[in-house]
């Protein structure tokens, strides 16, 4: 028996949703698996687990983790300032936060490279101290930090706004000091959102290509990221090789998404209001 519902159009919209997700997400992803499955494990491992690829994974995931950590700290501060204070130019700052979303990543890459190159504005200041940023793994971290910022700010911001100053006032009236208020009241409340923001920034950074290739220098075994390896395989018309690396990264991304969903479910259960 068909259940009667007051919401019309379930069949149509559900059909569209399934079709759309299949065309946009599911089929391309399965194609990657199918392509790589055809090459056999030996050949797969040779490309996907080569020494060069392993270095690239390490840089991609390592730099992404460092960048996401930096963003978690400073993104939290930015979100705090945007939520808690009124100041002239607040709307401008608010818009600036979204810029890494909107800016073509190649533009960001070129701008950052120009700034951090040994003869650039910031690079020339750091060069006397022997700190090199551009064309080094450090440059990768800088680029990934840039593109990951909005994820942390935009996930933490609504939670902070929802938290309101009242709970802080309540904590103070109960005798809690500033540090106790932060550690016992604010931190546990925003931690799930911060973790989600961290995971999103991390996932975005792992797959980032455009902004990184300019600043990275792309030296094998040193400053070469995994997405670049895929592009290089493609340029040599080695499609199975490219998909082998792609599958490896895809699995890692799935693991990330799964972790994010677990986190969100956990925070929703605890914070449901």
């Amino acid at each position: 028996m068909v259940e009667r519902s007051i919401m019309p159009g379930f069949g149509l919209t559900m059909g569209f949703t399934v079709f759309y997700l299949s065309v946009i997400v599911l089929i391309p992803l399965s194609a990657v698996f199918i392509k790589s499955a055809g090459m056999g494990f030996e050949a797969f491992a040779e490309v996907a687990l080569s020494k060069r690829a392993l270095y690239a994974y390490r840089l991609s995931f390592g730099a992404a983790a460092i960048a996401a950590t930096i963003n978690a700290v400073f993104g939290l501060i930015v979100a705090w300032v945007l939520v808690r204070y009124e100041f002239p130019g607040k709307r401008l700052v608010n818009a600036l936060v979204d810029l890494p979303f909107a800016l073509p990543t190649a533009v960001a890459g070129i701008a950052l490279t120009a700034l951090y190159a040994p003869n650039g504005w910031i690079g020339s200041l750091l060069a006397p101290y022997g700190i090199k940023v551009a064309f080094q793994p450090l440059g990768v971290v800088v680029a990934l930090t840039f593109i990951g910022l909005p994820f942390v700010v935009r996930t933490v911001e609504p939670v902070l706004a929802d938290l309101g100053p009242e709970v802080e006032e309540a904590a103070a009236s109960l005798g809690a000091g500033r540090w106790q208020t932060f550690a016992r009241v604010i931190w546990p409340a925003i931690l799930p959102a911060l973790a989600t923001g961290f995971a999103l920034a991390f996932a975005r950074a792992v797959g980032e290509y455009g902004s990184v290739i300019f600043i990275a220098g792309n030296m094998p075994y040193k400053s070469e990221i995994a997405p670049l390896l895929i592009v290089m395989q493609l340029e040599q018309y080695n499609v199975p090789g490219a998909t082998a690396i792609a599958v490896t990264m895809l699995l890692a991304s799935f693991a990330m998404l799964f972790a994010i969903n677990l986190l969100q479910g956990w925070s929703r259960r605890r914070m449901a209001a």
Binding site: G164, E169, A171, S173, L174, G175, A176, P188, A189
Partner: peptide, 28 residues
């Protein structure tokens, strides 16, 4: 505030959502 020893009750409760009822009451 924290040195005045006042009990303050807010219109919208301002409970700590991540703490149980007992943890809320014992917070002070």
């Amino acid at each position: 505030t924290r040195e005045r020893a006042v009990g303050f009750v807010f219109q919208h409760y301002a409970l700590f959502r991540h703490m149980t009822v007992a943890e809320n009451v014992g917070f002070g």
